[in-house]
Design a protein around this nucleic acid. Structure first.
Lengths: 207, 207
DNA sequence: CTATGGAGTGAGTAATCACTCATTTCTTAA
DNA sequence: TTAAGAAATGAGTGATTACTCACTCCATAG
């Protein structure tokens, strides 16, 4: 019997492991889905893009919808952990967080738009988003918001209202540029983040 | 030959005019589309909901996609004219405009979410949105924004950046409540509008 | 070398789709 | 009353769909 190490080497040279095949399918599905939408994509097309037979998809995922959920689940909130935890200043936290989110959203532009588009029609997607963003994401933001309020730096507005507006500003960034191409002159992420942050922190009024 | 008046009365009693049939189909299509998405809806289902035969749909609209565009076009920006034009104060304008938009969005919740969801996949929808919102809508807002900047009330931030954030806060209101049901305790539109306006005008910071 | 089992395959299937068209039904003018 | 045209109909059509399954392939175990 060969060692695991030898088996892995063989696999790399000749064959793909089950997990690698799975990843191929997930990656292809992500690309096709984000381009054409869930109902606009066919399993045949995904199989072609993944370089497998159509039947292989259903060996890994029982249904097309199961594939959809499997595509989205691991993508939700990816990277939130990488946030700098040594921040002590609530304002600085929001600055870092916003830039981090905006970069993530720009990198995964199609994915984010796809997620929120399909969330309109699939309960499963809404649940995944709720569990991910509400379950984990908000637990990171809320303490910082509360801290800012306690320190007298932030206004004591209701957290959900703040959250809703903040997410709107950030998430709509990609949607806006996709729906209204060319309207917003192209700038760097930093510039966009600064503009959003300025509005979010200080508002439109001057005094 | 009967007068128009007589014909209309006859129609009301017995038959529907072509225009009324058209409206029936458009209304049914809107309901089905917003519930299941464009690709998730079938023309058979729409016909059933409209109380007509499937063939009748294609007598009024050459293709399903033509029906989609016909559904969305007249809905875009509906009601923008009703805005109070006698406002003189830029801040008051934004207050009125925001409440007006928020009411419109709450009333047409499914429609708004549907529009921006399908805009991801259909160039025609993006064009309709661009023409409608960018063509007419922004021409209403920009003068007020410019006026506010001239009067030294608003910060001279780039208009597209302001617009993007503003639209994000407003449009995301319905999406947020749909994707995260129950997270934001239910309040009146006025309350929500005030919260958004406070953030938009004065920001999160206190000083 | 041969047997075994699990991964991969792709032609096949029943269902469903957008769209068509021959036919029926209704409206109206004479 | 009737002729004629317009509108509505719904069974039919070919294309497409998600999903199945009998089979092949191949790495390993004995």
């Amino acid at each position: 019997m060969k060692s695991n190490r030898e088996m892995e080497q063989l696999d790399k040279r000749k064959k793909k492991t089950i997990e690698e095949r799975r990843q191929d399918i997930l990656e292809a599905a992500l690309n096709i889905f984000t381009e054409k939408g869930y109902n606009g994509s066919t399993t045949a097309e995904i199989a072609r893009a993944a370089g497998v037979a159509e039947g292989t998809i259903f060996r890994h995922f029982a249904t097309k919808k199961e594939l959809l959920v499997a595509v989205l689940k691991p993508k939700i909130l990816k990277g939130i952990i990488s946030l700098d935890k040594e921040q002590k200043d609530p304002v600085e936290f929001f600055r870092c967080f916003l830039k981090n989110r905006l970069e993530l959203i720009k990198e995964n532009d199609g994915l984010v738009r796809f997620m929120f588009a399909e969330a309109q029609y699939h309960e499963e997607v809404r649940e995944a988003l709720s569990n991910g963003i509400l379950g984990d994401g908000i637990n990171i933001i809320k303490p910082w918001f509360d801290k800012g309020v306690e320190e007298g730096v932030f206004k004591p507005i209701p957290f959900p209202a703040m959250m809703r507006s903040f997410m709107g500003m950030v998430l709509f960034y990609g949607i806006f540029n996709h729906v209204f191409p060319g309207f917003s002159p192209e700038r760097t992420i930093d510039e966009a983040a600064d503009q959003i942050l300025e509005l979010f922190l200080n508002g439109l009024l001057i005094n």
